[in-house]
Structure formats: structure tokens, C-alpha cells
Design a protein around this nucleic acid. Structure first.
Lengths: 171, 171
DNA sequence: TTCAATATTTTGCGCCGTCAACCATTGTTA
DNA sequence: TAACAATGGTTGACGGCGCAAAATATTGAA
């Protein structure tokens, strides 16, 4: 008879597939990002800052968006600040808070990195799928994301309202 | 005019979506797995052993399958062995190699863990999608997996040929 | 046989991120 | 106003994993 052991359940392989793809892509991407001096988490934080109206987000919002802990964010931002890609600025309205602000150098760095990174993304991920397959994939992922991480958009509204902490590059 | 900055490229958000889903699921799963005394990597290794014909795989094959390094596998197997879920056995035909062999306790543990784990998988992942959506997702993931990790099935054939190192539970 | 070249696993060291404890600030309640 | 819980962030101790070198076993050639 066919196997009916629980450890062969299809749902487990569905998880496994997701994990393998994630790890595989991460590994493929790591080399080139490393050449730009960035890790996956560092890139993500720079990207999120760059996409925010004034290029600034509070530490705790970064934590919520990235599913790093706040202490993890502290450390990543420490490194980025040491590298001159980010600066910390205190928050006028709530002196407990701290803005992480993308510097010009940071924006340049992430732009340069992404420029090459996109080749890899295309080569190992999006470019492998037909537009229909890609859309179906993203639709499914979005459904899952919205239930497992509904908080992934924290802080954007506040940051837009806040006054910029450094000369922003937005004209 | 609309934004055309490179850091807003859709392909980046396609990566981001995958990463967010992976992290979100990992977090959701961690609590219950932790209650069974297993981490994600430990579960994966136990699963792969349990699915192999004689419940045994060589360390290097585990490394290839999991995209841990061999040293990572050494450490995970160390813990699993300390917990009595796995034993090491030397390889007759090539005494450089080492089999990691799932014990009966290991099979019980992983079975019990998976039994509950599947509820979470259903609740946060597979159960959120229609059968069509799930199939489309898996199809796309399989395409990407096959190009970024073609080596993910290492060692299964050899393990099936090798003689079992402990009383196997296969009748 | 002996010695170099190769293959498999383990170990030393370091980085990265979590957890828990901590300090500073805010808001609330009296 | 004082007291105190709640919030935001940082720090120290710790564990997991990767990298590279070491330890062990195997193969091939002189």
C-alpha cells in the first residue's frame, strides 16, 4: 500500500519548498551583496528607509517592519551608522524615540547595490517565471503575508508627517 | 510624474514578499516546535532522515540537502544525538564517512511534533489558499527551487542501498 | 611501501541576532 | 505634584551557524 505516514504529508513539503527557495535565493544573492558591503538585513533596512517619505523611520518601526527585534535593529543600525550610511537623530516630539535617517551616502550605496542585485533577482527568481506564474505566486504570497505579518507597514504615516532630519534628496 | 527610482522596482518587492512570508511563518511555527524541543533546522534534519529508506543519511548529504554547511550539520546532529533522537554510525564502505541514523525516539518525537505542527501549517499557510492558488504557488516555487538548489536530493539512493544501522521501523 | 593528493568530518574563532535586564521618557491616576 | 505603569531604545550574556584550518581516512603513484 502507499505510504500514509504523517511525516510525508504534502503540507510539509509545501513548507519545505518555501524554505528551500528562500535559502537558495539568499545564498545566490549573498555574494554580490557582500561585494557591496551589505548583508540581507542591512539591505532591507536601507531599502525601507529609502522608500519612506523623508528617508527616516523610528527604530521600533524598523523592528516591526523587518521582524527583527528592537535590539537586532539597534545592532544593524550601529553597523550602518559606523559605515556612514545612516545617522541617528533624536525625535523632537518624543525624546525616547530615535529616527534612523538614510544619508546621501546610504542612498547611493543602496542604489548601486540594487542596480546589480536586480540582475541576480531576475536571473534566479522573477525571470524564471512567466508573467502569469509570477502573478499567481505573488498573489498567493500576499495572502499569506497579510495574515502572518499584518504589521509590516508600521510607521510610514508618522515618518511622512515628521520633519526631515537631514537634507533630503527629494526635490 | 510617477516614481521611477530603482529601489522601488517591483522585483525587489517580489523578493521582499517571499522573505516576509518565510519569516512570518517561521515565527508562527517556532512556538509550538519549541514546545516539542525542536528548532526549524532540527525538525528539517529529523524529517529528512525519517523520509529516507533506512532512516539514515551521511553528514555531507544532510548538508547538501539542507544548505547548512557541514559544520552546521555537525552541530545540529550533536544536539540531536545528545537528546537521543539520532545516533552516529560509521560507514563500512568508506570509513571517512558517518551516517546520521534516526532512533526510534527520534521518529516518535518528530511524528508527535509534526502532528501538531500541521495544524499551524494549515492555519497560517496552506489553509489560507484555494487549491488552485496553492497549486500555482507550489508550481512556481518548484521552478525556482530546481534552478537555485538542484542538489537538494543528495544521497537518498546511496542510503537506500546501504544496510540499516539500527533496527529500522520499516516492516 | 611510502608519500602526496583528495575526501569527510570536526574544531577554533568570530559574527550576528535573540533574550532579559536596564535606563530614560511619557502619560495616567490620585 | 508625586507615584507608577507603559513605551522606546540600548547593553551584556549567550547560542547558532559559517569560514577556514586541523584531524582522520582513502586513493593513487612512484
Amino acid at each position: 500500500m502507499a505510504t500514509t505516514r504523517i511525516i510525508d504529508d504534502d503540507r510539509l513539503t509545501a513548507v519545505g519548498l518555501l524554505v528551500e527557495v528562500h535559502r537558495g535565493l539568499t545564498n545566490k544573492f549573498a555574494a554580490r551583496l557582500g561585494r557591496h558591503g551589505l548583508s540581507e538585513n542591512e539591505l532591507e533596512i536601507l531599502l525601507r528607509l529609502g522608500r519612506t517619505p523623508n528617508c527616516q523611520l523610528r527604530m521600533s518601526d524598523l523592528a516591526a517592519q523587518t521582524s527583527l527585534t528592537t535590539s537586532g535593529v539597534t545592532r544593524v543600525v550601529d553597523r550602518l551608522e559606523r559605515a556612514g550610511l545612516v545617522v541617528r537623530a533624536s525625535c523632537d516630539t518624543d525624546r525616547r524615540g530615535t529616527w534612523a535617517v538614510l544619508t546621501d551616502a546610504g542612498l547611493e550605496r543602496v542604489t548601486a547595490a540594487v542596480e546589480e542585485h536586480l540582475e541576480d533577482v531576475d536571473r534566479w527568481y522573477t525571470g524564471l517565471l512567466t508573467p502569469e506564474q509570477l502573478n499567481a505566486l505573488l498573489e498567493a504570497l500576499r495572502i499569506v503575508r497579510d495574515t502572518v505579518r499584518p504589521e509590516a507597514v508600521a510607521g510610514v504615516a508618522e515618518a511622512a508627517r515628521a520633519r526631515p532630519r537631514i537634507a533630503a534628496t527629494s526635490p
